[in-house]
Design a protein around this nucleic acid. Structure first.
Lengths: 230, 230
DNA sequence: TGTCGACAGTTTGTGTGCAAAAAGGCTGAC
DNA sequence: GTCAGCCTTTTTGCACACAAACTGTCGACA
């Protein structure tokens, strides 16, 4: 068959593709992932598909029901408070770390991500904004230089992409501009090496985001809302 | 063949067994894990072995070199400072959370784990002490009720099991008794719901452990030490 | 009419074969 | 004696086949 595909790339490409589709909500939570159907879609056998699903399961993005099928993991609203708590903590920890480990080269990446973010806001592109915001904070985490923080934080932010997509389908431009300014303030504080200020700004920034999501949720709850996950 | 094995248990049992062997250092970092050899050892085909290795790779416990073999992940001493930082943070976060979410049933589990820990210290069993200490803090994290904290912290503590095994091969009984007392103090602070005290105790407890490991490392460095991982 | 059991269909879990890729050894030339 | 190139060996990545397990449906019986 197609031996054009590089040897180790099968699993990788399936993993990346499905992961992206899950995070962008192209695959809704609860969607069944059939191994045969996926293998047909990607034009390869079940084995690499299976291995990709295994990796996604390890990431917590899909849930495999033993001897049954695999589904896209549901977003559990009951754990949202825990999520916000963990997210806030990691906002603070990574931003503090960044203020302590300044590095010109990595700092430039932070600036670049902030430019992307500003552009997304100006374009009023809600989805691009979500991605850019994530990338901005990942860049800060990498600047902080603690790999444990970076991987955990990245995981949290990715889960957040799904939550945000749920509520950002319609774009409201009141708050985003404020986010741009907060990002600028955080950058300035990092460059000044002011750890305490970073901590305060990160705390406030996290609270801002949490507040906004909670507003969206509260608004949704006033409308009839289909909570059935599957 | 042996159809006696339950259908879904193959991968699971291989995963659990190898994971345990890695965490207890029965499999040294850098040890090669050959799929064929493992499949012979466990009396099954390569497929379930392969899936188990994939899960271990997702946990970061093994590293798979593409198109080559997979090896037990090395312990990277360069990242130890980051590790200690993350560990300390999670000690604090989970203990604080525990003080806020008190629960009689889960609290009893904490007491039980502390009894195990005390017994391990009295028995002068270094390895049992390592396991019991991990379980004690996991129990506190579960008491805290934040699943994100629990999973990240558990992962850190498991990685710590390997590091501690490196340095606890000979048991020194100066500090352990102090750990017992510190654990007791933490339990009391949780039961009193004193968040700030929990934070201080967790910080000090973490610093204690970090200091001890660093002492071990410093002592080792004074001797000729083979740093070659493989 | 409601409930239980058997059957068929679907989907996963595992076994097996083959080919690609990398490592190490061998041979030959310089 | 050393180094380059080829070949062999080892091990993985993927394809495919088969059987177990679960779901849903249909029919029989109370």
């Amino acid at each position: 068959m197609e031996s054009s595909r590089a040897r180790g790339s099968g699993t990788q490409s399936v993993y990346k593709t499905i992961r992206q589709e899950i995070l962008t909500m192209a695959l809704a939570p609860g969607s069944p992932l059939d191994e045969v159907r996926l293998s047909e879609r990607f034009g390869m056998s079940r084995t690499p598909v299976r291995e990709a699903l295994l990796r996604l399961a390890a990431d917590g993005l899909v849930t495999t029901l033993p001897n049954r099928n695999t589904v896209v993991s549901a977003i559990d609203f009951a754990t949202l408070p825990s999520y916000f708590e963990a997210l806030s903590l990691m906002y603070r920890a990574t931003t503090r770390a960044a203020a302590m480990h300044r590095d010109a080269k990595l700092m430039e990446k932070v600036h670049a991500r902030q430019r992307d973010f500003r552009k997304a806001v100006e374009d009023r592109d809600a989805f691009a904004m979500i991605e850019a915001n994530r990338d901005f904070h990942v860049a800060i985490a990498e600047l902080g230089g603690n790999g444990y923080y970076t991987s955990f934080f990245t995981r949290l932010l990715d889960e957040g992409r799904r939550i945000l997509r749920l509520y950002y389908s319609t774009f409201e431009d009141r708050l985003p501009r404020q986010y741009v300014e907060e990002h600028e303030a955080i950058i300035a504080a990092i460059e000044a090496g002011d750890v305490d200020l970073c901590d305060r700004l990160a705390t406030e920034h996290a609270a801002q985001i949490v507040r906004q999501i909670q507003d969206y949720i509260a608004r949704d709850l006033r409308q009839p809302m289909d909570l059935a996950e599957r």
